[in-house]
Nucleic acid binder design. Structure first.
Lengths: 340, 340
DNA sequence: CCGGTTTCTGAAACCGGTTTCTTAGCCCTC
DNA sequence: GAGGGCTAAGAAACCGGTTTCAGAAACCGG
């Protein structure tokens, strides 16, 4: 339905080339002609076709962003950071979710390549190297989060959980806790693995051996069932570290349902500081991850990567920090022994 | 970096036309040739360029989805519903957020037209008619939610809050409440206005005159300040209806901070049933809006709209339903009169 | 064995921009 | 007033697919 550039050109009595030059300011055009063209553009309500532009310039002003699931509250801030940065520079972003399915991931990657994106940020940690290879082979840059080291056309953003975790452990030790448990997240997830390691190492440093270290996925209800399995043991922990806020909230829920008070009976600590963490009852003590910044940096990293094409990518670091709210409290002196 | 169709053609000893036909199955090709082409496609790892395809077919397999803000938990399910439906039919979606800014909305619309989308679903209720006119003028179909009646190339999905609201009011009346308050949402928001009207009408039907009816935006903290202003009055309500779950959660937060117990002292009811509603403390009683379905229907509506081009759009309806959780309880016999 | 179909494939035009190459016209200088 | 250097704008090729049109080959029936 829309008009074409030639129509504009004809109506303004100039050549298409001139219209193009006026619209892109790529060459000086006499003010007279320029005005005439712009007038027609307004009259006709002309929009230039992005696809034609992409085709002829061979440059696609598109970047891809891959996440697992839109409903997971971990992602919104990342998306916003990424989109915001892209928008500021005049780039568009194609958002795809993998729904945790490898098959779907594959289609997504294909779509991205077909769309001729300049680069893609992969914020899921369940991607295999085959996938990234496919992307780089097609000449598109890749940035991911918490996966291997950078390589040709791929950069990595590493979230350093160390600092936040240390703070959390010190906080908990200062409150007098000695019996800890860890619900880490999916056992095959790089991020979850990293977090679990850091947690265990940190606890050991304080001569604490976390009791159950439990695998679960990132859905809320699995935090709940993990907690139930912990409660069924004879020696109950007084604090449980969770691999994500979602898990933590599920855990708090289950705890409450089992009649265990948070934080009076057991303290719980999450990771991420999702926007709802402070709305939880009690407000969740958690290790905050700068997700909006993560998104923004991912975009910048991609831009940089595409500038120095075929160079090796870089490694970026992002810190974390403990946010103390109300889900942690001093350890109870008397540890209940009752086996429910 | 990627290969072109002509390269494939050359390597397979056929013409580009043949390659195109093989890849799109648009015409019968001898098995022999077909295999040869497919083999080369695999060898070269060839991806066809979407932009070229869009350009030459004049069909853009793209749909747009406009929301206010990605971080607002109202939207994820809508996005998922829309994307899911689109994905199933092989369409891609361009997601944009307006950040509540008219200027930004305008750029977004421009981008959508330039991208030659087939249709766009506008899930923000802060859009003016000028905007939709621009879209329809460019021949792209529009579907929105809770805005005016359908017209040429525009359909509307109307969420019928009536049923849910009636249920909520009956629920509350049955619990013995007589003093109600309403925190509706932004006064210039069509949805908020609709909800407020329905609420007041419903309450009047039970001979109840809601006390303060307060405007606020959709951010959490404004639910909190609205509640504070309500508490400062001498006659306190025993139940407050909120125009969204976010407002309700902000309200509960503030209530708790002011030492008012939910639901013992005052009950609160939200609208939307966002995914966190059941995680609130106490779990929120709310009127659920089928948002994933809303997204899916929006897509279907767009498809239908584009099929019978230049026809008048249709009106769709979506029901709502009360979900009773723990934020509502019987009214206190003795109403506190203390002015804090 | 010949004319008429049908089947398979290629040549070329086209989609709507961008960009290179070229030229017409102008100004300036000597 | 002629020649050199600029400037503004057009013609045409091109990006990478799709599709129409046309033709060669194969096939078929009589």
């Amino acid at each position: 339905m829309s008009h074409t550039m030639r129509e504009v050109a004809e109506r303004a009595g100039v050549s298409p080339a001139t219209v193009s030059r006026v619209l892109n300011k790529t060459q000086y055009i006499s003010p007279d002609t320029e005005q005439r063209v712009l007038k027609v553009v307004r009259e006709l309500n002309y929009y230039k076709n992005v696809h034609a532009r992409r085709l002829s310039t061979g440059q696609s002003n598109l970047f891809g962003l891959v996440i697992s699931e839109i409903a997971n509250p971990y992602f919104p801030e990342i998306i916003r950071g990424f989109q915001g940065a892209a928008w500021d520079k005049g780039f568009d972003v194609l958002l795809f979710n993998t729904e945790y399915s490898p098959a779907r991931t594959e289609s997504v990657i294909r779509k991205l390549i077909e769309s001729d994106v300049r680069g893609v940020a992969i914020m899921t940690s369940s991607v295999d190297t085959k996938t990234t290879a496919e992307l780089t082979a097609a000449g598109v840059g890749v940035v991911f989060c918490n996966l291997g080291p950078p390589g040709r056309l791929v950069s990595n953003i590493s979230i350093d959980y160390q600092r936040g975790i240390s703070q959390a452990i010190e906080h908990v030790v200062a409150l007098g806790h000695r019996r800890t448990a860890v619900i880490a997240g999916p056992g095959d997830n790089r991020t979850a693995i990293t977090i679990r390691r850091a947690l265990i190492a940190g606890l050991n440093r304080h001569k604490l051996n976390p009791l159950p270290v439990i695998d679960c996925n990132y859905r809320i209800d699995s935090g709940a069932s993990a907690v139930r399995s912990i409660l069924s043991r004879s020696e109950r922990p007084t604090v449980v570290f969770c691999g994500s806020d979602l898990i933590a909230m599920g855990a708090m829920n289950a705890l409450e349902e089992e009649g265990v008070q948070v934080p009076d009976d057991v303290s719980v600590i999450g990771i991420d500081d999702i926007s709802f963490a402070f709305l939880a009852r009690p407000p969740l003590t958690t290790i905050s991850v700068p997700r909006e910044r993560l998104g923004a940096i991912a975009f910048e990293a991609l831009q940089k990567l595409m500038k120095l094409k075929r160079q090796k990518g870089a490694e970026y670091y992002l810190g974390t920090e403990l946010v103390i709210r109300k889900s942690t409290a001093p350890a109870k002196q008397q540890v209940s022994r009752s086996v429910t």
